[in-house]
Simulated scan of single mutants.
Amino acid sequence: MTASDATTGAPVCSGCGVRLQSESPDKPGYVPEQALGREDAICRRCFRIRHYNDVTHVAVDQDDFLRMLSGIAGTDSLVVHIVDLFDFEGSVISGLQRFVGNNPVLLVVNKIDLLPKSTNWNRVRNWVQRQAKLLGLKPAEIVLCSAAKRTGFDRVIEAIQALRGGRDIYVVGATNVGKSTLINRLIRDYSDLDRELTVSRYPGTTLDQIRIPLDDGRYIIDTPGIVYPYRLTETVPKGVLQRLLPEKPLKPLVYQLNERQTLFFGALARFDFVRGEPQSFTLYVSPSLYVHRTKLERADEVYAEHKGELLAPPNADELDAISPWTRHSLRIPPGSRTDISISGLGWIRANSPAGAFVEVYAPKGVHVILREAMI
């Protein structure tokens, strides 16, 4: 008979203890409907651990995630916080420092392979240090890496060895930051588990923490990915998501604009250069994202006539899934090194010796900020 929750009687995964459900594949406890009534049913995540030694990410909402984090301060652990360099501010866990107590935090900055090959990495590292401080983070160490290209992973392992001191390892991060790749690498480097491992060796909680045993009797605690609704990548259909997330190094797009010119990013966002001397703006976005330039006075007309067609993604049948736009008015100081970051979409480097006044339209709730230029 399927295991059940002692209080509610609802079926739970016999591997990790999460309540089973068949409605949402990207949520904890997913199992195909036909498997719900099976004896000792296990969720899809535990199935993949058992048969493929693959810890795939699961997402939870912000409130559940923060409740789960609240217990870390009472442990003796190393916290590995993974963030996405392509959406740094959007993937940082807000308020993490108050949850970890005296435990050290290793900040792992993933997806460095997306930046141009000519990037000055010392400058990027210094930028990350300054941004982390502004966001209230106090990492014991910062490591830049690429999970996809395995660049810098040896340095991540070295930093963990130096900071761990025999502690458990909590791995935390937002969705789509590369957490699963790091977890699987840690399993290979720190554990003797093989492809025949059983789910029962991975006890968990209803929030789907997975405790992965290490050779020395301690654990890697894999936490579900947190969903931040202010990231564009969390609000778009899957087909659009594939075009938002770049897989190859970004090729900066430079636009020389006069005032009262507009750039459309498909039908996902709009950038208006409202006022200022003629100047260039450098775009760092996925090459799969279509950028269209027009005059500001025609922008509303162009959007109304061409959204979902010329202006795509999203396509016409996906438009209803995108929230209405909100306008953000931004003043770029003269002579500043400034990025205009649209969380989940990328950023625009403003090259403004005389300053500029711009407006950005993005789906409601998506964060649009000015920041010190990354590169």
Results as ranks from 00 to 15, higher is better:
residue 93 I to H: 03
residue 94 S to V: 13
residue 91 S to Q: 09
residue 53 N to T: 14
residue 92 V to Q: 03
residue 48 R to F: 10
residue 117 K to C: 10
residue 125 R to Y: 06
residue 56 T to A: 13
residue 119 T to K: 12
residue 87 D to N: 13
residue 52 Y to F: 15
residue 35 A to T: 09
residue 57 H to E: 08
residue 72 I to M: 06
residue 83 V to H: 03
residue 65 F to N: 01
residue 63 D to I: 13
residue 102 N to T: 10
residue 32 P to H: 15
residue 131 Q to I: 05
residue 141 E to C: 13
residue 100 V to P: 04
residue 36 L to Q: 06
residue 144 L to Y: 11
residue 44 R to W: 06
residue 137 L to G: 00
residue 66 L to Q: 07
residue 39 E to W: 01
residue 35 A to N: 14
residue 70 S to C: 14
residue 112 I to R: 09
residue 42 I to N: 00
residue 79 V to F: 00
residue 104 P to F: 02
residue 147 A to L: 11
residue 82 I to M: 10
residue 69 L to T: 04
residue 136 G to S: 02
residue 78 L to Q: 04
residue 61 D to R: 12
residue 88 F to L: 15
residue 70 S to Q: 09
residue 42 I to W: 01
residue 39 E to L: 07
residue 66 L to T: 12
residue 63 D to T: 11
residue 48 R to V: 05
residue 71 G to D: 11
residue 124 V to H: 10
residue 84 D to R: 05
residue 36 L to I: 12
residue 33 E to I: 14
residue 145 C to W: 02
residue 47 F to M: 08
residue 48 R to S: 10
residue 137 L to A: 04
residue 70 S to T: 13
residue 54 D to K: 14
residue 116 P to R: 15
residue 73 A to W: 11
residue 92 V to C: 09
residue 133 K to D: 04
residue 89 E to K: 13
residue 43 C to H: 01
residue 134 L to W: 09
residue 116 P to D: 11
residue 130 R to M: 07
residue 61 D to H: 14
residue 83 V to M: 04
residue 40 D to K: 12
residue 71 G to T: 13
residue 37 G to F: 08
residue 65 F to I: 10
residue 89 E to R: 12
residue 36 L to K: 07
residue 49 I to H: 05
residue 98 R to W: 05
residue 62 Q to V: 14
residue 102 N to P: 00
